[in-house]
Design a protein around this nucleic acid. Sequence first.
DNA 1: TAGTGGTCTAGACCACGAT
DNA 2: TCGTGGTCTAGACCACTAA
Lengths: 242, 242
Amino acid sequence: MAQESPTFSPLYRQIRGLLTQALQSGEWRPGEAIPSETELAQRFNVSQGTVRKAIDEMAADNLLVRKQGKGTFVATHHDPRAFFRFLRLAPINGTIETSQSVPLECWRARAGQEVARMLDIEVGSQIIIVRRLLKFAGKPVVIDEIYLRGDLFPGLNLEVLKEQQGSLYSFFETRFGVRMVRAEERLRAVAADRQSAEYLEVSDGSPLLSVERVAYTYDDKPVEWRRGLCSTADHYYLNTLN
Amino acid sequence: MAQESPTFSPLYRQIRGLLTQALQSGEWRPGEAIPSETELAQRFNVSQGTVRKAIDEMAADNLLVRKQGKGTFVATHHDPRAFFRFLRLAPINGTIETSQSVPLECWRARAGQEVARMLDIEVGSQIIIVRRLLKFAGKPVVIDEIYLRGDLFPGLNLEVLKEQQGSLYSFFETRFGVRMVRAEERLRAVAADRQSAEYLEVSDGSPLLSVERVAYTYDDKPVEWRRGLCSTADHYYLNTLN
DNA sequence: TAGTGGTCTAGACCACGAT
DNA sequence: TCGTGGTCTAGACCACTAA
């Protein structure tokens, strides 16, 4: 094996690359089992332990999920345990609440400078803009404006959005084969504009939590840019620092 | 080895427990090297690979830091790379700024119900309250109110706080041997009260980012509870979702 | 009972840092 | 050159799931 500096990449990381490629190509779809470690070891001509280390890393990054005695599975946003991975809002008092996504608008447009930069696409490329309201226990909590790469979500419109069950990312995954893998959020406190205040049923100028997010798919390609305005009267944004 | 359900704990996790205990007891201080994997393997009567797996986990949790060719070291808040692990604020425009902590007040008090619950201590126990201002590039950005367990920070007062160089946690570490290992933050948007507005040089009622934090030391014991109010006019709170 | 992932071991060799 | 962590391998056995 060629293992020279400074291009040195350990074997298990190369295996991880091959596995990621297979995921990206759709060889194994979200929720499905991937071959056993022994099979993969034969396929890639390495020892089982090397495959194991590659899978360990990918499981740590939430790309795969191991289940003892059953196999290793492609991670999916359908899993209810993974639901709050990308939704860090929790009620201040009380337990888990049911959430509901209410799509308001959906239209196609051309990317301006800012969106183009965020999604790493050309200015003028087609994008999709979605506005939706997120409710917890029936009460409006977040108003989202979502910008998507137009080429990856063919046929997406308001009617289609209304079919959504579960999380939006779960919907994107099954309906368009686009799986969100990682995201970066930038939080600020802002004053509510008139329209947002109306939707969120708070008074004009109330402090709201602004959450800007860029979400990436397998190859670190940005796919979604969104800005959410959250009413933090009854909810907070939870973050754990390790 | 006894390995029966449901009390089953793999050997490497028991080793992790022993290592954590050693850290907690101060056998190896922050910044120091711990013994080599081979030495530890002999000491605990397990193979080197088992020690390795224990250390791997602890390195992933930022308790230890591996340095190839040199050894494994106890993680420290002195490390400038670790500085932003517990401080997620970044300037909206531009690069890294110098930060400065300005202590304002420091006094001892008795824990009320809320603080007692947060710090998992008895109501009436002695606590220390610190108020400080955090400046970025000379401008006030965060006003913090910090509640500490009184028993763990003997002799802490305003004069001592003024000796602080680097981060507050770095200071706690060297001065009191208390190392923060993990924290949970709850974020909300609130309106600035008169006093905070004055400190942060924003207008009364401006939206501010409220960051409540509980910080834990090695044995998951809560040690600090704080509430910060951040002006997000020129800074945002950055979070990465995996 | 068979198949999967999970643990533990032992040994060989590589990459890095210090001497 | 030596000691450290890093990688890779091979094999034995344990724990969990499903048939």
